[in-house]
Design a protein around this nucleic acid. Structure first.
Lengths: 97, 97
DNA sequence: AAAACATTTCGATAATACTAGAAATATATT
DNA sequence: AATATATTTCTAGTATTATCGAAATGTTTT
């Protein structure tokens, strides 16, 4: 993962609405949550939510799977783990220097 | 920490230049790195760097301490730990549901 | 107090992001 | 095939962010 990819992930997590969506999806686990459910829970317009979702997808933080006419959103755990690893490894506190 | 504060931290880390600065400061440890050194290492203009630094300060991710005419920037570890904790706790992978 | 050094603030431009109503697309049901 | 449901794309206005040269500020040395 390049620094740009990590920065992109942070950037997309750096908005309260998107962070709420992401947090909600992590809680939901494997199957995820439909766009409509997110819309109802967060109370924001379709189009606005749709843009936020595609931002998260573009950063590789979440993915979407269709089931009939419902689109489920779910977390890309590999990406989440990469981000956590970056903070722990690349940004580790090294007092031994 | 509110969701807005966490989002703000992610937002400011969400830019390649700022993320490089932050990473550099974490590596540097307690004393930090001067603005001038960052400028030389990253090769970006004073004013641009200064804005990025104040963004990181505004998110509480770094702080500045003057020593003579040199301003040192250093990481606010509490904030870094909060961000890591958020990802691990609030965004934990819970397969037990 | 003048000159040198370190950093920020000003000012202005360009680029990107946020928001959301309305129209379009895709799928399912009757 | 018509209707209902779920979601995205279009369009457009507003707001925020990024960039950086030049001027200003604060600090030290001479």
């Amino acid at each position: 993962m390049t620094i740009e990819e990590i920065a992109k992930a942070f950037k997309e997590l750096g908005h309260a609405t998107r962070l709420l969506v992401f947090k909600r999806l992590v809680k939901a686990g494997e199957k995820g949550v439909s766009v409509g459910t997110l819309k109802d829970e967060l109370g924001i317009p379709n189009s606005t939510l749709s843009h936020h979702i595609s931002s998260l997808v573009s950063a590789g933080l979440i993915k979407q799977q269709r089931e009939g006419r419902v689109l489920y959103c779910s977390v890309e755990y590999d990406k989440l783990l990469s981000v956590i690893s970056f903070l722990q490894d690349e940004c580790c506190i090294d007092e031994t220097k």
